[in-house]
Simulated scan of single mutants.
Amino acid sequence: MNRATPVSLRSSLEAAHTFANAGIDFVCVPVLSESDRIDLVNQAAARFEQLIQNAEKNGGRPMSQSREQFEARYPVPAGVRWSEETSRYALVDIKTARHTGSTIAGYEAYVHSWGVWKASRQAVVVHLPPALRGLIDADDVRDEIEAVGLSCEVTP
């Protein structure tokens, strides 16, 4: 095993810092050789692809992880559905809503809660350092970060 170059170490530290700031769990693994580094980078790329595929739901259209987390925390009221056309929640069955005790005011509160949820996440901006470009596809990372509702900027 050879000592890593300062540039390689800096790139690895910046990548780890970016993952930590974005809340992405990761494991530090020593690189044994250049071919091992290539294998590890390929594994990382495959894992990011898997994350993207796991996020694809809702009739083949991706459901944002932010909305998925919101709905896990605040279940969608009866009679309410997500509208792909308007990109918002819609009251689609007033009879079901009334039968389960939901009200128009409850629907409006749910829509308001979704707005607050999105605004709280949009206030966070993750900056991707240029060092990530040699390790992974920065566009894929940006897409994953934005899928959880956070803003992302790729530093030139």
Rank of each mutant, 00 (worst) to 15 (best):
K57S: 08
G134V: 04
A78C: 13
V141Y: 03
V126Q: 04
N58G: 00
A131R: 08
C28W: 13
R37H: 11
P129Q: 08
A44L: 13
A90T: 13
G23R: 01
K95W: 07
C152N: 03
R47F: 07
A46P: 04
T18L: 11
R3D: 14
R133A: 05
A44N: 04
H112E: 14
P77D: 03
E56D: 06
D143K: 11
T5K: 10
E146W: 01
T103Y: 03
T155M: 14
I94K: 05
A119N: 14
F48K: 01
Q69A: 15
S33G: 04
L51E: 00
V27M: 07
T18I: 15
P75T: 13
M1I: 10
A97F: 02
A97V: 04
A44H: 04
I94V: 13
R73M: 13
S120R: 15
E84V: 06
T86N: 08
R37N: 13
V125N: 13
R10A: 07
R98V: 11
G23C: 07
Q43K: 14
H112D: 14
K118C: 12
D143R: 10
K57I: 02
R81L: 09
K95H: 10
A90F: 02
L32I: 06
W114K: 10
A46M: 09
V111T: 09
V31G: 02
L51K: 01
V126C: 11
S11R: 14
V111W: 02
A16D: 15
R81I: 09
R3N: 09
K95R: 12
T103L: 02
T18A: 12
V80Y: 02
R88M: 06
E56T: 02
S83M: 10
S8H: 08
E144F: 03
F19H: 08
L128Y: 04
